[in-house]
Amino acid sequence: MKANYGYHDGSGDFFITIDSNLCTGCVECISSCPADVLEMITDDYDDVVAAVKDEHRKKIKYSCAECKPVDEQPPLPCVAACEPGAITHSW
């Protein structure tokens, strides 16, 4: 299952997508994230997978701002940490 967490507003699309079919539950992304955006959940189909915390979903653009400077963008820690490539960002 691909879960899109975030929102769409006048300034654009801000979604973090986590693919539970790829996520192995290794928790690497959780420890890599400087803003404590991610957590592990047991989803409705009983898979233990990474997810964006509820309190960050409506302000994800700001929560992730530190990792996304406007000029040169370094690789995102969460994306780099995820070996199976389960995490993608829309912006």
Partner: peptide
């Protein structure tokens, strides 16, 4: 009926 992908917008 198993979810393959979802998106939820509850910001406004």
């Amino acid at each position: 009926g198993k979810v393959q992908e979802f998106l939820m917008n509850d910001k406004c």
